[in-house]
Amino acid sequence: MAEVASGRLGTRLGRILLLLPYAIKHPGVSIGELSERFGVTTRDLLEDFRLVYLCGLPGYGPGDLIDVTLEEDAVYVSMADYFGSPLRLTAAEALALYSGGAAVAALPGMEEADALRRALAKLGGALGASGTDGDDSGIEVKLAHGPAEHMEILQRALGEGKRVSLEYFSASRGALTSRVADPWGLVATLGRWYLIAFDHLSEDERMFRIDRIKSAALLDERANVPDDFDPERYKAAFVEREKQARLILEISPEASGWFRESYPALGARGLADGWTRVEMASGGEAWAATLVLRLGKDVRSVRPETVMTAARTLGAAMVSAHTS
């Protein structure tokens, strides 16, 4: 039933309800500007206006229909004062823009943070429908970003196209590492910020958790940044690589629910006794060992065997530390 709002029809209707107030407020606006602003082709725009030209108020005589005039490239819309302002934001629109804004405004080193906070306060104040108080949007966004100075250095490096040196706690190695990296961009996902960079230590692209950077320094060397860097690729905090090591586990029925919620699986198969056999990309042996220890009695048949050995070694050390 909601096909109008979500489908092609709704997109067009929504656009028209926005196009009209814009054209009314800016008489003589060019088709070219409208096309760029609304991200539609000239052809679609002309079709929109042709459609609007046939609409209006009951009576539908010359004095009732919306008047659309096209002179050369300039558009004039009149006789449609009731479409003089856009529709309020939907809850989904308000939430998306507000949360994106809140994420950016909380970022240390953001030049625009002040303007953004002012904008969000105005937006928050307008969101309430009934009896909302002040600028309270009701939305809070928390993204871990570690110490402010690291974020500032990384933003500078990205802005100037410079290389950085990092001291980084690598979960896959289970150790603090020193590395040189070419920063590509910043991506927030799973509730925290990551630096996407080419890592000279592993000679591959890596997602660095910013809260695990112990220290960061700007180097006076140019970073190589690919032209086609696309943050979308890192959305899930997990980038599939060729030759990525695999981890195979069997998970108990009790733990399979949260495990599925927490870790992306490459494949999963139910077993006769209710356990689930999961195949996933391994984040490295040390990482896999802590995953096995977290699962405790809810995991069995871990492959490769080296992961199980590493888990037992680490587990024995932890048990001994907590029994003495």
Binding site: L95, V141, G185, L186, V187, A188
Partner: peptide, 12 residues
């Protein structure tokens, strides 16, 4: 274009 970044806030 300045810094390239993105935020997946699962807001969809």
């Amino acid at each position: 274009p300045r810094i390239v970044w993105g935020a997946n806030l699962a807001a969809e």
